[in-house]
Design a protein around this nucleic acid. Structure first.
Lengths: 200, 200
DNA sequence: CTGCCTTCTGGCAGTGACTGCCTATACTGA
DNA sequence: TCAGTATAGGCAGTCACTGCCAGAAGGCAG
């Protein structure tokens, strides 16, 4: 990637701005904090905040890792089934994180589910990301419809899993929740057996 | 429900406002139309538009049917498995519609997927609705985690299905897409068999 | 029909997110 | 060091959205 001075300074500034924003949002609430206050706390101009993040919600949603390229993922997709791949990808991503990064995730997730404006932007962001993955991968198993639905269902599952993780007070490692969600998607939701325990 | 004159006039006004809004959004694009223009076209004040719809996106998302109570759904949930219930609910909802209602749905769906601001609000709306359903139903099959994930995955699947329906030019009845998505969720995404056609 | 009460609509003023445009400044490559 | 280019900051403007208050209209006795 680009390792010029400009790019490094920009990333440093973005980290500083996001950190200041999270502090303020946690202390006063998302709606009560104006962009001007974030800019002042991070010692940049409001205009720069918008140039970097595009919207107020992105101050919470933005993740440095999101800018990594997608192509290695596509290469692996050919080898294994999608569930296995996504499970592996998520496990690897969380295993690679140190405590500081994990803390950042927790702060952001907590804010996402506390403010519906952020949640809306986040859910859309996740869906867009998932469609990128689906597009990079191409028709999986020959059926584009199946791929599309799987990816959307997967995003829905992850969102539900993260919500439960958040509401459980971030008690256990997040990938345990993702794993359980993936296992459920894998086995399907056909309840015709388990529901027929006694009726009729 | 409430059948007072005030309530009927309000509903009529909302229909008129939404219709005017859809006309303008289709002609000029969502961002290019100010609320003031919608209000003028529908012959109400801008303040009233906000009082009725709350946000600009809701002009597209709002559905009169959404205000129906949820309790009958909860009653049926006890009897059949969730997939069957949701399939039946969607089939019934679409079957009940006349051509005018179906046309309204198509207009709204097309706008949802053409403008990301609307899409974000719509996806969040769907997730909130699904959580309401999950809450009304309670722990399904004894596992609240499973219920939560299923509902989220279902919403994700429906969103993907409607997107495909839209991009296919609204060619066939929408519930065919929903049906296919539900069938995929039901059978699960375990690909370990179908992928082992020749590798290794 | 009439008057009273409740509820709703419309206008006004204000906040704050977001955007184009221009200038000053900081990086970059020779 | 010096041109050339990319980037940050400031300014002004648009527009979504929100309280607040006065006036209009529906609802309900009598």
């Amino acid at each position: 990637m680009d390792h010029g001075l400009q790019h490094r300074k920009k990333l440093a500034a973005m980290r500083r701005i996001q950190d200041a924003a999270l502090d303020l949002f946690e202390a006063q609430g998302f709606d009560a904090v104006a962009i001007e206050a974030v800019a002042a706390a991070a010692e940049v101009s409001p205009r720069t905040v918008y140039r970097y993040f595009g919207s107020k919600e992105m101050l919470v949603i933005w993740d440095e890792e999101d800018e990594l390229p997608l192509s290695p993922l596509a290469a692996e997709f050919a080898a294994v089934d999608p569930v296995t791949l996504l499970r592996g990808t998520f496990r690897a991503a969380f295993a690679r994180m140190d405590e500081a990064q994990l803390r950042l995730i927790r702060r952001r997730v907590a804010l996402v589910y506390r403010h519906s404006a952020i949640e809306a932007a986040y859910v859309l962001h996740a869906h867009r990301k998932s469609r990128l993955i689906a597009a990079a991968v191409g028709p999986l198993g020959g059926d584009p419809f199946r791929t599309e639905i799987f990816v959307h269902a997967f995003v829905g599952g992850v969102i539900g899993a993260l919500r439960l993780w958040c509401h459980a007070g971030f008690d256990s490692p997040p990938f345990e929740y993702i794993d359980r969600a993936l296992a459920l998607l894998e086995q399907g939701f056909d309840d015709t057996d388990s529901k027929r325990t006694d009726p009729s």
